[in-house]
Simulated scan of single mutants.
Amino acid sequence: MEIPFSQISERLNNRRFMIADNIHGLSDAGTIFHYHVEGNAISGTYQGGLIRMGNLVGRVTGPDTIELLYQCLTRDGEILAGWSRGMVGVDLAGRTTLTFIWGWLSGATGGESNHVELVE
């Protein structure tokens, strides 16, 4: 489902997301992402599972698209960084969804991931 450009902030700002599926990634169902949006600028943090702590910055690139750079420190003490391009959607239950294609800046194999909004 496509959402208007102006609604990306509404769909992401101060909302939390969990991993629904992550092919080849370190993030899992225990990793929680918390996003903030100001204008077309996106920032956030994430942690849980294999991720001790992580940050992300990005921008809105279209009516339902975003791009992000991220970095994290794993529970094993490894520092990693990568990029992602994502689509913002809405599922049948009305929760915001994020679908990403991503890769590591080191050149290691990337993958795809799907996130779903945590509703409390």
Rank of each mutant, 00 (worst) to 15 (best):
65 T>N: 04
105 L>W: 10
116 V>Y: 05
55 N>T: 13
20 A>N: 09
88 V>Q: 09
103 G>L: 00
117 E>L: 10
99 T>S: 13
101 I>V: 15
66 I>E: 04
106 S>E: 07
34 H>M: 10
88 V>M: 04
67 E>W: 11
25 G>D: 01
92 L>H: 15
27 S>F: 10
51 I>P: 08
105 L>K: 13
35 Y>H: 08
2 E>R: 09
93 A>P: 09
9 S>P: 11
107 G>K: 02
46 Y>S: 00
98 L>Q: 12
70 Y>C: 03
44 G>Q: 02
42 I>Q: 07
24 H>D: 09
17 F>R: 07
112 E>I: 12
84 S>D: 10
24 H>M: 11
67 E>D: 10
60 V>E: 05
1 M>Q: 05
68 L>V: 10
78 E>I: 09
101 I>Y: 14
33 F>C: 04
104 W>K: 13
7 Q>E: 06
1 M>D: 06
57 V>G: 09
38 E>P: 03
12 L>H: 07
79 I>E: 10
115 H>F: 08
77 G>W: 01
91 D>C: 01
11 R>H: 11
58 G>Y: 07
93 A>N: 12
65 T>L: 00
27 S>D: 14
76 D>V: 03
18 M>R: 10
28 D>F: 03
56 L>A: 00
76 D>E: 10
48 G>E: 02
4 P>Y: 03
68 L>W: 08
70 Y>L: 05
73 L>E: 13
61 T>S: 10
58 G>A: 03
114 N>P: 00
117 E>T: 11
90 V>C: 13
96 T>K: 13
18 M>F: 06
67 E>S: 12
44 G>P: 01
76 D>I: 02
113 S>D: 13
41 A>G: 11
20 A>Q: 14
36 H>D: 12
49 G>K: 09
119 V>R: 15
12 L>Y: 05
106 S>L: 04
81 A>P: 01
32 I>A: 02
36 H>W: 12
105 L>H: 12
8 I>G: 01
117 E>D: 12
31 T>Q: 04
66 I>Y: 04
26 L>V: 06
52 R>D: 03
29 A>C: 06
40 N>I: 09
87 M>T: 15
54 G>W: 00
51 I>T: 10
105 L>N: 13
12 L>V: 03
106 S>P: 05
67 E>Y: 07
45 T>K: 15
70 Y>F: 15
103 G>E: 02
73 L>S: 01
19 I>S: 00
22 N>L: 07
94 G>A: 11
6 S>R: 06
51 I>S: 07
53 M>E: 08
100 F>E: 12
109 T>L: 10
56 L>Y: 12
1 M>G: 10
54 G>L: 00
46 Y>V: 00
76 D>C: 05
47 Q>C: 11
20 A>K: 12
68 L>H: 04
50 L>F: 05
117 E>P: 14
38 E>A: 12
